[in-house]
C-alpha cells in the first residue's frame, strides 16, 4: 500500500496578546492511496487549521512546525511559496465548506475550471475545456457544456459544491482535503455529494482527508478515523474500531450524545459532555479532557498522557488500562 501523506508532530501556534495559542499540538497521521481518513471533533479543536497547515494556507501570523510533512515522499516543509502553489491544485486540492470562498464570482465556471488546469499542466485551452466537461458530467451536472458559460451565483449551493469537486479533480491530484464539504447543504444533497466523492475517490484512487463534526458521515465514509480534542488526536483507528470499540472517554461521550435510531428511546435523555474545552493558550497540564471526563482520577490532572496502542493498532490517549477502556467502550458502541 503506498503512502501519500505523512504527518509527524504537526504543530500550529498562533501568537496572541494573551499568550501563544497552541491550536494544533503534535499530531501525527498518514493517508494511503485510495484511503479516506476522517478527522472528527467539535468546533475549535483544530480541524480546519490542520488542513490549512497541510495546504500551506495558514493565516500569516500562525506558525507551523512538523518533524515530517511529506506528500508522495516529497518534503512539503522545505518548499517555498511558489513551489507550494504549484503543488496546490495539482498534487493536492482542497474543498471548502462554502464553495464561494474558492470560486471567483467574476469568472464563468468554464474559465475557472480551465484555469485550474492550464496553470499546472501543459495542455491547450481546448483540452482543458474537454476535461472540464468530462468532470462536470462525472460530478452529475447535466448539460455540462452549457454550464461552462454560467457564473457561480447562477448555481444552487449543491451545484456549486459539485463544481468545486470538479475543480479539485482537474489536475488529477493524489490527495483531496475536504473541510466540512457538506455542512451547509440539505441532507439529500449532502448524501449525493458524499456518495459522489466516495465513488470518485475509489475510481481515481486518491487519498481523501475528510474533516467533519458529523459522526454519521464519519461512519459511512471513513476507512480510518482520527478524533481530535483540544488540538490533539485523542483516538485513532479503523472506522469499525472507533464505532464498535471506542476506547477514549471523549469518543465514547460523543457517541452517547447522538440519537441512534432503534437504540435510543424517543424522548429519552441523550448523553452529554458537561463542561467546556480548556483554553488552548499556554501549556496543558495532564490530560486535556480531565475536567470533563467521567472516569478521571487524580493522576489525570498531573501526568502527561501519551497515545497508547490497543490490540488491532487502535491508538488512544488515556491513562486507563485497555481492560477498563474496553469495559466503557461496550456500552458506548453504536454498532
Amino acid at each position: 500500500m503506498s503512502r501519500i501523506l505523512e504527518v509527524e508532530n504537526l504543530r500550529v501556534d498562533i501568537p496572541l496578546e494573551s499568550g501563544t495559542l497552541h491550536a494544533v499540538r503534535d499530531i501525527s497521521f498518514h493517508v494511503d492511496k485510495g484511503e479516506t481518513l476522517c478527522i472528527v471533533g467539535e468546533s475549535g479543536c483544530g480541524k480546519s487549521l490542520t488542513s490549512l497547515a497541510l495546504m500551506g494556507l495558514l493565516p500569516t501570523k500562525a506558525i507551523r512546525t512538523a518533524n515530517r510533512l511529506t506528500l508522495g515522499g516529497r518534503d512539503l516543509g522545505t518548499l517555498n511559496e511558489t513551489q507550494m502553489a504549484d503543488i496546490r491544485g495539482s498534487r493536492m486540492a482542497m474543498i471548502f465548506q462554502e464553495p464561494m470562498t474558492s470560486l471567483n464570482p467574476a469568472y464563468t465556471i468554464g474559465n475557472q475550471l480551465a484555469e485550474a488546469m492550464l496553470r499546472h499542466r501543459k495542455v491547450n485551452p481546448n483540452e482543458a475545456r474537454e476535461r472540464a466537461i468530462y468532470l462536470l458530467e462525472k460530478v452529475g451536472i447535466t448539460a455540462a457544456a452549457s454550464r461552462l458559460g454560467q457564473y457561480p451565483h447562477q448555481l444552487s449551493g449543491g451545484l456549486r459544491q459539485r463544481v468545486m469537486i470538479a475543480m479539485a479533480l482537474m489536475c488529477g491530484p493524489d490527495l483531496i482535503l475536504a473541510d466540512e464539504p457538506t455542512t451547509a447543504l440539505d441532507v439529500t444533497i449532502q448524501a449525493q455529494i458524499l456518495h459522489l466523492l466516495a465513488n470518485l475517490q475509489k475510481e481515481f484512487e486518491m487519498g481523501l482527508v475528510l474533516i467533519t463534526h458529523d459522526l454519521g458521515i464519519v461512519a459511512r465514509v471513513a476507512h480510518r478515523v482520527a478524533v481530535m480534542y483540544a488540538g490533539q488526536i485523542v483516538e485513532e483507528g479503523t472506522v469499525e474500531d472507533i464505532f464498535r470499540r471506542p476506547m477514549h472517554p471523549y469518543t465514547q461521550g460523543l457517541l452517547r450524545c447522538i440519537p441512534i435510531p432503534g437504540k435510543t428511546a424517543r424522548g429519552a435523555h441523550l448523553g452529554s459532555i458537561p463542561g467546556m474545552v480548556p483554553s488552548l493558550i499556554g501549556d496543558l497540564k495532564g490530560c486535556a479532557f480531565a475536567n470533563r471526563c467521567p472516569h478521571a482520577f487524580s493522576d489525570c490532572n498531573t501526568t502527561d498522557v501519551a497515545l497508547r496502542e490497543a490490540s488491532g493498532g487502535q491508538r488512544y490517549r488515556c491513562l486507563l488500562s485497555q481492560e477498563a477502556a474496553e469495559q466503557n467502550a461496550r456500552e458506548a458502541a453504536t454498532a
Binding site: Q190, Q192, A198, R220
Partner: peptide, 17 residues
C-alpha cells in the same frame, strides 16, 4: 429524505437517494 440519513453505522456506505 429518509434514505439520505446517515446513521452512525460503519460499513454501510453512503446511499444513493
Amino acid at each position: 429524505l429518509l434514505d439520505s440519513v446517515l446513521t452512525p453505522e460503519p460499513g454501510m456506505g453512503v446511499p444513493d437517494s
